[in-house]
Design a binder for these strands. Structure first.
Length: 938
RNA sequence: GGGCCGUUAGCUCAGUUGGCCAGAGCGCCGCCCUUACAAGGCGGAGGUCGGGGGUUCGAGCCCCUCACGGCCCACCA
């Protein structure tokens, strides 16, 4: 609000409120029903400090100095008897015998969970080792040697020398399925046991699967396990393991190694790959990730995404829309991410978030299994469960839960034994009913005629986890507009149907994968259309040293502080001017002397522009105020509060263009060009170009030149009337043009303008707009009413003025003292200069003594050339200085002539460059030679 | 390891399909408090466009390569 963002503040929403919760429940229900949500035992990114799993993109990779430990595992047979291989040729093992193999690892503590050692089948040693085992030190586990081509061959055995892994690999890979994602996959391929040796806090523990896998481990393991490892954190455990290997001559080598390790974005400790039960969203299903890629704008696609072809496909594409990135290169980020996506772990072990709406239901076994065979038992048990399920459905239906809003399914093999069914309802009331049942079940007295007893419920509990915050965020374009309310979905005029899809999402590049992609997937899935059409990625602001701004580091600026020191419009303008198409922009940060808060001199730019606008407005409004209202011909009909520009009748419409000066024509033409440029910049999401365009127009063209040129015009009728009209119209247009970046200042000025000069406009040239509030007024339109002549001639006048100013400055003339100027100019030019005489005299502080084709320089005058005109400034007698200046000018001209001649002597240039350019070069050469001749003749 | 971005004036950044002498703001120097504006006006100095090679009549821009800075992705042997 402080920045003046015109959001619809009535539609304020909070991620965790009722409406958003309904959307989350609906989405979860539908995805679950469509078999896109599943529970799986997988390795997750585990944060041992906050004890939650993290999504892949919540893991930050950091370079860490670590070590490679080369650990020796003794070879043995199936029974554990030591084996020493003999290789008489020595070809395979590089030695004549082999009693152990060596693995390389950065995480020695995970060896406690090793369940195999892998070797590449192409490794010559693989044949020798076939059928052998190793005895894991410390735990004394006998584990097999398996062959898998995933294992990298060391360089010495023909590995790729460019693969860094091949450089430090030994050819043997320890396999720890419970603590390494690749090892997990490898373990699945070879049916290896999965032994988790860690507690959720990443300490070594028997209690999370290890003891179940190896009931006698306490007895069989080396005492070191109990004394130095159990209960110890992973770092301590690492040291203990390394010491054990060293003390037993099993540590072959330690090499320093710098590598990147995933860290938690929450606690900043290294991630532990951890085996646990989690909920997954099957984004790998083609209805999600692949579909998200298929809506990428055709010209932004690089991968071969299957897109439905033919008329049907085209129809579908048209109805679902396309997503386009600005700048286009970010499409690749989006596309690659979807292409390489893995299923999304959506459960989080946090207390804050949307609770996963899944209930676990377990029924009581009400019959005896005595004397039955296994399969008979299975059948009876299944039938019983079916009956229980049926009864529960009926019960819920009686309580008002529609069967359509309910999914009850068997929990499947991945859920812990004893967990009979999963229940998910789309109706939030189901939770109340189930909560009541659960409470009843837990109460000490549970009468036989209670619902719980009738339903045969053994246990009933809701999943304790919450959803990843991006799950609800992904629904934002839907949930903020009333989805999933059926009325809102059906009503064509509802906010959902009006604003989804929306036009543009503006965000930062790291959000592309976290949020943009998921909004697209969900919107397509639930609504069959894209959530927005354009995605505008803006640069990230860094501090003066190129570091990311961070609250805790204190190197950032607070927008509210900037609003205090510079103003909201200055903040907006400056930020827009920094929104280039690169990735990062720097903002030097310093402490404000008055407030003690962080600020940046960058914002001075915006403030200066606001001040300039304010001052120019004071001048314009003062001039308009001095003119009687009736002098303004009514040019616009009252359009009420209408925001549309009023169509102006063609023709003169009382504009009296015959009275316009070259400056008048020029500024009107420039205004229209500027509107065109600004519109193009905005359409391309080039906010920096838009900011610069309005700056150049308003400050340079309007203030520096037009207002100065207008001053003499305002002093005399009948020009005054025309000039005030033009001032009013251009100022009106400029306010509308600049309003998006400077809403506060322009709005106030608009009110003043409406008050002082309610009737304004230049029919056909500048379409003005009556609206009490600027924010409701139309953005100006480029009327394409350009004056080529004015745009050509006025800059010549500017050059003449600048030339005179230059001569004055070079000769150190008091800036208030007028000088006499004569200008030698051919007929047309002379007339144009004559017409602009008052402006030239005012702006260059001079008197034009004579202008024409016959003008001769007075003796002692100094001179300058502008095109075909010669300017003589009289009375600045300093012969030596002038001679020096002329000599410098001659030298410059000669150099220029040489360059141009060189170009024209180049045959390739003459032959291949466009004729237009060659002609231009010829003209330039002729002009330069003529000028040199004139300078030399005097 | 893959990808992306950046390297242009002391600082922060523009520079559209290759085409006049590479621009702006701030800072710096000189003059000016001229009745819109000193948070301003006028004028000025300052750049081998990161290095090297190539394509082209012509390269800040296109291609190759190297260096440096930053970011994203990737299964931490």
């Amino acid at each position: 609000k402080a920045m003046g963002c015109s959001c619809d503040w009535q539609r304020w929403a909070y991620t965790m409120d009722e409406q958003r919760a309904r959307a989350v429940r609906e989405a979860f229900f539908r995805l679950f029903k469509d078999n896109l949500i599943y529970r799986g035992k997988r390795l997750v990114n585990w944060d041992p400090v906050t004890q939650t799993s993290l999504a892949d993109d919540e893991v930050e990779m950091q370079e860490v100095d670590g070590f490679f430990y080369y650990l020796r595992y003794p070879l043995c047979d199936r029974a554990g008897n030591p084996v020493t291989l003999r290789d008489p040729t020595g070809a395979a093992v590089g030695a004549d015998n082999l009693s152990h193999i060596t693995v390389a690892t950065t995480r020695p503590e995970t060896m406690l969970g090793d369940t195999a050692v892998a070797v590449n089948p192409k490794d010559p040693r693989a044949r020798l080792l076939r059928g052998l085992f190793v005895r894991l030190p410390i735990v004394n586990r006998i584990v097999p040697i398996v062959e898998d081509s995933y294992v990298v061959l060391p360089v010495s055995l023909g590995g790729d020398p460019n693969d860094p892994k091949a450089q430090f690999a030994t050819g043997f890979l320890k396999v720890t399925p419970a603590h390494d994602a690749n090892d997990y996959e490898l373990g699945l391929r070879h049916n290896l046991p999965i032994i988790n040796v860690m507690a959720p806090d990443a300490s070594i523990s028997l209690d999370h699967g290890w003891l179940e896998a190896e009931p006698h481990i306490r007895e069989t393991a080396d005492p070191c396990l109990r004394s130095h490892l159990l209960g110890k954190g992973r770092d301590e455990a690492r040291t203990a393991v390394v010491h054990f290997f060293r003390d037993n001559q099993l540590l072959q080598e330690t090499r320093p190694y710098r590598h990147s390790v995933g860290h938690s974005y929450r606690s900043h400790v290294p991630i532990e790959p951890y085996l646990s039960d989690q909920w997954y969203l099957r984004v790998t299903d083609k209805r999600l990730a692949a579909r998200a890629n298929s809506v990428l704008a055709e010209d932004q696609r690089t991968l071969d995404t299957p897109v439905s072809s033919g008329t049907e496909g085209a129809l579908q594409r048209r109805s679902q829309g396309t997503v386009r990135f600005h700048p286009a290169r970010y499409a690749k980020t989006y596309e690659t991410w979807h292409h390489n996506i893995r299923d999304w772990c959506i459960s989080r072990q946090l207390w804050w978030g949307h609770r996963i709406p899944v209930w676990y239901v377990e029924f009581i076994q009400t019959f005896s299994g005595q004397g039955k065979t296994g399969s008979e038992l299975d059948d009876r048990w299944k039938a019983h469960l079916k009956e229980c399920e049926h009864r529960l459905r009926g019960y819920l239906e009686k309580q008002g839960i529609s069967p359509d809003d309910l999914v009850i399914q068997e929990a499947g093999p991945l859920i812990k034994p004893g967990m009979g069914h999963l229940l998910v309802s789309r109706d939030p009331r189901a939770d109340r009913i189930l909560e009541k049942l659960a409470a009843e079940r837990e109460s000490e007295v549970c009468p036989a005629d209670s619902d719980v007893a009738k339903l045969g419920l053994k246990s009933l509990r809701q999943d304790p986890d919450v959803l990843d915050t991006w799950f609800s965020s992904a629904l934002w374009p839907l949930s903020t507009l009333g989805w999933p309310d059926p009325d809102i979905i059906k009503d064509q005029r509802s906010p959902l149907n009006r604003w989804n899809p929306s036009n543009v999402l503006c965000t930062a590049r790291e959000i592309i994968t976290l949020w943009v992609s998921r909004m697209v997937m969900f919107n397509l899935y639930f609504r069959d259309c894209v959530p927005f059409r354009d995605v505008c990625i803006v640069p990230v602001i860094q501090d003066g040293e190129g570091r990311r701004m961070s609250k805790s580091f204190g190197n950032g600026v607070d927008p509210l502080d900037i609003i205090q020191t510079h103003g909201a419009d200055a903040l907006r303008y400056t930020l827009a001017s920094m929104a280039t198409s690169t990735q990062d922009v720097r903002m030097p940060v310093e402490v404000d002397a008055n407030t003690g808060k962080n600020t940046s001199p960058k914002f001075d730019l915006g403030r200066a522009f606001c001040v300039k606008l304010w001052n120019a407005a004071r001048f314009v409004l003062m001039q308009l105020e001095r003119s009687a209202p009736e002098q303004h011909t009514p040019a616009t009909q009252s359009a009420g509060s209408g925001a549309a520009p009023v169509a102006q009748p063609a023709g003169d419409g009382g504009v009296c263009e015959s009275l316009w000066t070259m400056a008048d024509r020029w500024i009107v033409s420039r205004f229209n060009r500027t509107v065109g440029e600004a519109t193009a910049a905005l359409e391309a999401y080039r906010f920096d170009q838009y900011a610069r365009t309005i700056y150049d127009f308003f400050w340079r063209d309007f203030c520096d030149w037009y207002l100065e040129a207008a001053k003499p015009q305002l002093r005399s009728e009948p020009q005054r009337t025309q000039t005030t009209r033009i001032l009013a119209a251009v100022f009106d247009g400029a306010l509308r043009l600049m309003h998006p970046l400077l809403p506060h200042v322009t709005e106030v000025l608009w009110w003043k303008l409406n008050e002082i000069c309610p009737e304004r406009g230049l029919p056909g040239r500048i379409l003005t707009c009556t609206s009490p509030r600027l924010i409701r007024a139309a953005f100006p339109q480029d009327s394409r009413n350009y004056s080529e002549a004015a745009e050509h001639i006025f800059p010549r006048i500017q050059e003449i003025i600048t030339a005179i100013r230059n001569l004055r400055n070079d000769h150190k003339v008091d800036s208030k003292k007028p000088v006499d100027v004569a200008i030698l100019a051919p007929g047309d030019a002379a007339r144009q200069i004559e017409a602009m005489r008052p402006a030239i005299e005012q702006m260059a502080v001079c008197r034009l003594t004579s202008v024409g084709a016959e003008v001769m320089p007075a003796s002692g005058s100094v001179r300058a050339s502008v095109g075909k005109c010669e300017i003589y400034v009289e009375g600045l007698i300093d012969t030596a200085a002038e001679e020096q200046r002329l000599a410098r000018l001659r030298q410059e001209l000669q150099r220029k002539i040489a360059t141009l001649r060189g170009r024209l002597e180049n045959e390739g240039y003459l032959a291949r460059a466009p004729a237009r350019l060659v002609q231009e070069t010829r003209d330039q050469l002729a002009a330069a030679e003529a000028e040199l001749a004139r300078l030399s003749s005097s």
